[in-house]
């Protein structure tokens, strides 16, 4: 097991976003988190990456208790990649500089070695000619693919994807999803929060429906989408179908 989330609670003001949530992720597994806006999908990912402090419970990564306050969060984050909904590329750096920042500054690789690795990745995802461009010259889909490469170049044990296609124009969603599909083929362990139900169905090994700060229902996509056992899940999915998103 790579990731184990045990009874995690996160409170914002009086609102319990996560209320004793449990989740485990095995190596090479792809877990999709679905649920209404505000159901805690993003918060959960931010907690796993230690960008948010949790209010109770424990999170384990590779058998290490990472929510122990004595653990250095920088060391933990070096082993986890996260990609955000709004890409969050650094606007003052070129694509290549964005990608090589962490390899050079954090992982102490030489600039040459990091640049070579970055160019190889960019070639693979069809962005080789954008290496020296600034992010504002790229389309949303291209920026998001760069953000994914920026996370992957550090060879993380676990990749967290936080609604990575939600800010994209419909015709740009495909290029990002196909990149994630390729990553699954290579055995990358991923947890993705998504509104793309069709994609979750295709790519996920396990689908988790978050409701009331907990995982209300989880199982293989055929079961969760095809024959959900919880009324809340059925209600959520019927709204999605109404909106034409499934």
């Amino acid at each position: 097991m790579i990731l184990s989330v045990q009874g995690v609670r996160k409170v914002f003001g009086s609102h319990r976003v996560l209320d004793g949530l449990d989740l485990s992720v095995d190596e090479h597994q792809v877990v999709a988190l679905i649920g209404a806006s505000g159901s805690g999908k993003s918060t959960l990912l931010r907690c796993v990456n230690l960008l948010e402090d949790i209010d109770d419970g424990m999170i384990w990564l590779d058998g290490e208790h990472i929510t122990d306050p004595r653990v250095n969060p920088d060391k933990v984050r070096q082993r986890i990649g996260i990609v955000f909904q709004s890409y969050n590329l650094f606007p003052h750096m070129t694509v290549l500089e964005n990608i090589t920042l962490a390899p050079v500054r954090v992982h102490r690789r030489s600039a040459k070695e990091a640049a070579d690795a970055a160019r190889e990745w960019l070639t693979r995802v069809g962005l080789a000619e954008k290496a020296d461009a600034y992010p504002d010259r790229l389309s949303g889909g291209q920026q998001q693919r760069v953000a994914i490469v920026r996370a992957l170049i550090n060879s993380p044990r676990l990749l967290l994807l936080d609604e990575v296609t939600s800010a994209l124009d419909p015709e740009l969603v495909g290029e990002v999803l196909s990149m994630i599909r390729d990553l699954k083929g290579e055995g990358m362990t991923m947890v993705l929060a998504t509104h793309e139900m069709g994609f979750a169905r295709q790519v996920a090994d396990t689908v988790c429906f978050l409701d009331g700060g907990k995982v209300l229902e989880q199982g293989p996509p055929e079961q969760v989408f095809g024959d959900p056992s919880e009324p809340r899940t059925r209600q959520f999915l019927s709204r999605i179908i109404e909106a034409g998103r499934l």
Binding site: R46, N49, L51, P73, D74, K75, R77, Q78, I80, G81, I82, F84, S86, N88, L89, F90, L101, A102, R105, V106, H107, R150, A151, N154
Partner: peptide, 16 residues
């Protein structure tokens, strides 16, 4: 703040 989150998520320290 999302720029800070992106940088910290890559493992950069506060100073970096």
């Amino acid at each position: 703040p999302s720029q800070l989150a992106a940088a910290r998520s890559l493992g950069l320290t506060y100073r970096q």
